[in-house]
Design a protein around this nucleic acid. Structure first.
Lengths: 214, 214
DNA sequence: GATGCTATTGAGTGTCCGACCAATAAGCAA
DNA sequence: TTGCTTATTGGTCGGACACTCAATAGCATC
């Protein structure tokens, strides 16, 4: 007779509840994978009945897509923030910071998420569109940074857009092993993204390396 | 009362039946994805009860791993066959053929399979090991080809192994979009694998392009 | 303090999955 | 032909899943 008492209900505004649900789903997506997003799982995490999740997302696929978008957008804004008007950092510095962050631990989770989403896209059209949109967003953001660098005379490239895609291809290729893990590539390989960027943008070797603290 | 008649049983040798099962699973993996490998699905395809699949593979995960290995090995032997003693083709030609084939349609299915397997590896240790083994096999095979090319004076590279990995990284990066599909990259991007190989191996530009039939 | 809207619950439906196991029959060997 | 080994069946079990919907109860408004 433990819990024959009816649960206490907490009633929230649709907007707030919906945001909660997406946030919860995004965290599950990052930590356990997109297929971990189930009505039960999210309901449990928010201490709410599964039916409520269905109420906000009549089809789970929508929630999955939304969760991915949320997580991916968050990471993009962290790694490649839009340059503020008074952003003191030069494109070179921002790009260098990007590569430094892109080896961190939270980035590893995001790599897994991308692999996850790209695979699941095979069966889920709604997710597929969101993935395509995110890919475009990353390309645009990086291309924009490159363009700015070109304008300031820091970078030299024939086509900023092509350079952006080339760099992203290498990043994706390196990230492919995020789940198999044992990679431990030689530096000549793990530095490949930076090397590609330096070559692509006409920079000196090592110019994009993280600042050594000596 | 359609099928109250007991099924006719066809009794095969364990080795033969097992091979059948793996082959069937590999085909399902290529066409529908690794999660399409279920006891019921394979049983149906072989016109056999699901329990029989369980008999040969007490844990489905083993079958999934085996199916992936089988499909991946098959593709590797097709794309990068081991050089026969009297194989007339030079390393340059074999590599060129590889890149030509690696844009075909069946290759697309294999790309999807790799994405599939790399993601599923996240949850399935047995599969993860097989994926790692296959990755190693591809690296070795390509490195071997490069080494032979170096020995014959066709290629120039500091480290054949590193060159092999670098090329594979680009291939993986390009293949990442196999499911999102809409890619339609500019040639400067879609040719990136070939360009990388040419740069990496000290070849002239275009030397690895497929022979034009003019 | 009463009323009404609606966010939330509870309970149920149907599907698909892997795993398990005793009973059965195919086909080889004697 | 008879027997025996064992490949194969048929049925069952428990669990997880998405989705549906009438009933319920927060809570803002009056």
């Amino acid at each position: 007779m433990s819990s024959s008492v009816p649960r206490k209900r907490i009633r929230k505004s649709p907007a707030q509840r919906r945001a909660e649900i997406v946030e919860s789903a995004a965290s599950v997506a990052l930590n356990e994978g997109l297929e971990g997003i189930t009505l039960r799982r999210i309901g449990e995490q928010l201490d709410v009945r599964p039916g409520l999740i269905s109420h906000y997302f009549p089809a789970v696929e929508e929630l999955v897509a939304e969760a991915f978008s949320s997580a991916a957008t968050g990471e993009l804004d962290t790694l490649l923030p839009i340059a503020g008007e008074q952003d003191p950092d030069s494109p070179v510095r921002r790009l260098s910071r990007f590569f430094a962050d892109a080896t961190g631990d939270s980035y590893h989770a995001v790599s897994k998420l991308w692999i996850n989403a790209r695979h699941l896209s095979r069966y889920r059209p709604v997710l597929r569109e969101r993935v395509a949109a995110q890919e475009a967003a990353w390309r645009e953001r990086l291309a924009g940074l490159i363009q700015e660098g070109v304008a300031r005379g820091e970078f030299r490239t024939g086509d900023p857009y092509v350079s952006a895609i080339r760099i992203i291809v290498v990043i994706d290729g390196l990230a492919a092993h995020a789940n198999t893990g044992n990679a431990s590539h030689p530096p000549a390989v793990s530095r490949m993204a930076i090397t590609t960027a330096e070559t692509e943008l006409g920079l000196r070797e090592g110019e994009l390396d993280p600042p050594a603290d000596d």
